[in-house]
């Protein structure tokens, strides 16, 4: 994940939060790592949200395969006050929108679709970049002593 794309991704999420009247928008990779969060993130455990989202998507993917689908790209969970809409972007990332009765499922679906297309393009270029040459890992220079230091306390 690089600075340039990260800024773009954040701005798409911010815009979606506004456009869809959502409380919270976040982006998670399928392994449960949080990529970006936007909206009312205070008082919310976004790390746990991320890992549970990934678990849920993985479980639903398993269910989909059992009935002969490849996956369920869109999921909607309705609560008494808050609802949650998630959609799979590309193949690796999940976009999650949490909204309450100030918004509606139709609006969220519409805006999410648009944002998801944009995000798809950003991730494509990101993948191309990561596959490209010339980007060294910052960890090649880590020494065993650095690793030991982590555990010294």
């Amino acid at each position: 994940m690089y600075e340039e794309e990260f800024t773009k991704i954040n701005s798409v999420c911010d815009r979606l939060t506004k456009d869809a009247n959502a409380k919270l928008v976040f982006l998670v990779d399928k392994n449960g790592q949080l990529i970006s969060a936007s909206g009312q993130t205070t008082n919310l455990d976004t790390t746990s949200l991320a890992s549970l989202t990934a678990g849920n998507v993985a479980a639903m993917g398993g269910l989909a395969k059992l009935i002969g689908e490849n996956e369920f790209p869109n999921q909607f969970h309705e609560g008494a006050r808050e609802s949650l809409y998630m959609t799979i972007v590309g193949t690796r990332v999940v976009l999650v929108v949490i909204f309450d009765n100030r918004s509606s499922l139709g609006l969220v679906r519409l805006r999410t679709k648009k944002a998801s297309d944009e995000l798809g393009k950003i991730f494509d270029s990101l993948i191309r970049k990561a596959d490209g040459p010339g980007i060294g890992s910052p960890f090649a220079e880590i020494t065993d002593a650095d690793i030991d230091n982590l555990f010294s306390e």
Binding site: G32, T47, S48, F139, L150
Partner: peptide, 22 residues
């Protein structure tokens, strides 16, 4: 399904290291 615990360990070369234990 699973248990999950995020844990951060400190920094290596300016990078925060976080472990997700499942």
């Amino acid at each position: 399904f699973f248990d999950f615990l995020p844990l951060s360990l400190g920094e290596i070369r300016g990078f925060k290291t976080r472990f997700h234990l499942y």
